[in-house]
């Protein structure tokens, strides 16, 4: 899965902000904010990843157990899916 084209991540005054551009600005009328670990997952999803890859990524950077990271990744992904921001692989 990966983030749809048309979302730009910028860090402004220490805040990680995602803004839709082009057609996505019409489809998604708003902005997103991320914390540091959310930014890590977002950047991994720009390149494309899966649940396992994202879980591993969290465990590489942070001191966290796999089950905790896994469930947190699921919650994060679920929120993006709800707003139709992800492209799912077939």
């Amino acid at each position: 899965m990966k983030i749809k084209e048309g979302y730009v991540l910028r860090t402004v005054a220490g805040e990680h902000i995602v803004v839709p551009i082009g057609n996505e600005a019409v489809n998604f009328n708003g902005i997103l904010t991320l914390n540091n670990s959310g930014k890590l997952l977002w950047e991994a999803l720009i390149a494309g990843s899966d649940i396992k890859g994202l879980t591993t990524k969290l465990m590489e950077i942070f001191v966290v157990e796999e089950t905790v990271a896994y469930h947190d990744v699921l919650a994060f992904i679920s929120k993006l899916r709800t707003h139709n921001i992800l492209i799912e692989n077939d």
């Binding site: 708003g30 997103l32 991320l34 670990s37 959310g38 977002w42 969290l58 994060f76 929120k79």
Partner: peptide, 23 residues
């Protein structure tokens, strides 16, 4: 293995806040 543990950061749950503009 211990060094690897020390190099990692204190965990923060990944959060995304979605702010939708109203018409």
């Amino acid at each position: 293995m211990k060094k690897e543990q020390e190099d990692r950061l204190i965990y923060e749950k990944p959060e995304v806040e979605i702010i939708e503009f109203q018409l």
